[in-house]
Design a protein around this nucleic acid. Structure first.
Lengths: 210, 210
DNA sequence: TTTACAAACTTAACGGCGTTAAGTATAGTG
DNA sequence: CACTATACTTAACGCCGTTAAGTTTGTAAA
């Protein structure tokens, strides 16, 4: 009787097995290194078995990303308690870059790979649960609040433009690190130093000076 | 007698044929869309013929990029005439983003794709001729000059850190556009507007205020 | 207790990819 | 005229994502 429930549980278990094996490959070596055959070998199933649990490779990897991005959302949780919106923005920026440095392959897939036109159909987490979207919304709220407090320089009134400038700034640090840090023709400063320099520059560039 | 020279010329001609066909594919649809078989079909050669002119696909595409990046170096030429190093920096930033927007696939390959470890062997253009490297050196010279003129804020003394902050800023605008501009959950401002906002932010953040 | 069935999985294959080994045609040289 | 270097082609290898067609197996209905 309860057997259907058990079978369902078993199916979810192998689904998790696939996800875990794929996550290992992905986190260590990136999207290209994740192959259906390699995942299958690791969990001792045939490659086609994976298709019983995921529609295709892209869906599988994106689900991994979506799950792991909850770590970013989690990092935002304590930040939400901070009262000063400007401090909050700074903490968001720092947490954002830290996430990118800790999960470069996740970051690359989510923010450095062009979206193919026409895949706005979202995964199981649904449109409004997308952590990346949430992060933008979270930043935007802080910006709107700081704007209301008159914290930005005169002339800066568009919250989206401010958000996009902030985002571009921290994304630049993160993305340059992910893609270019092993280039030897630049005498790279340490990532934390670059993060600090960027945040200070953005803030003294955007904020009304005391 | 002069036949060896003619043969050499003919070989260079088919080499150019390959480069042009590959460039079309690459510029329109990006790295993945460039396949040896597709190039071959277009120029009516067999796929293996390409290997007589290029060691592998990566070498071929990187040569395309290196060549087209000369356009960026070219855009820097008039900028070099500008006397004020701060103005020069601003013009470099603007030209840089304009290049990225005009050649998104080139930009993606050169600056948004992680370098595989151990390919520091450079192409025919040689180590010092790499336009990307030249661009950084060009920026750095302007920064050093501005630094000598005391144009940066107190506390900003490291030319490389300043360069990397500037680079990250403009890279952020460019990279976010290339990878994320078709995402609909952000109310994107126009790229030129984002460029202006970023440059103004960076400059008022970095420069000593008059 | 047997039969039917649906779910989970496998085997074999397709078409694509980058790349290579082996063969061929040809033009210039001794 | 024979020889050889060069520019090419054909055929194949081993990968990839994905699918069509079977096979097992545990449960439920007869």
């Amino acid at each position: 009787m309860g057997s259907v429930a058990r079978r369902e549980r078993e199916k979810q278990a192998t689904r998790e097995l696939i996800l875990d094996a794929a996550r290992d490959l992905f986190a260590r070596d990136g999207y290209e290194a994740v192959t259906m055959r390699r995942i299958a070998e690791q969990i001792e199933y045939s490659p086609t078995a994976i298709y019983l649990h995921f529609t295709d490779k892209d869906a599988l990897v994106r689900e991994i990303c979506a799950v792991d991005f909850l770590a970013l959302a989690h990092a935002f949780q304590p930040i939400a308690l901070e009262r000063d919106p400007v401090v909050r923005i700074k903490q968001i920026g720092r947490a954002y870059i830290e996430f990118a440095l800790a999960h470069p392959n996740h970051y690359r897939l989510m923010f450095m790979t062009p979206r193919l036109p026409g895949q706005e159909d979202m995964n199981d987490y649904g449109r409004k649960g997308d952590p990346a979207e949430d992060a933008y919304a979270f930043l935007r709220m802080a910006v709107v609040e700081a704007l209301a407090q008159g914290r930005f320089r005169a002339g800066l009134t568009d919250p989206d433009l401010i958000c996009q400038t902030l985002w571009a700034g921290v994304h630049g640090v993160a993305a340059l690190h992910v893609a270019m840090s092993s280039d030897t023709w630049v005498d790279w400063r340490r990532p934390e130093q670059r993060t600090d320099a960027m945040l200070e520059t953005l803030f003294s560039g955007l904020l009304r000076q005391d």
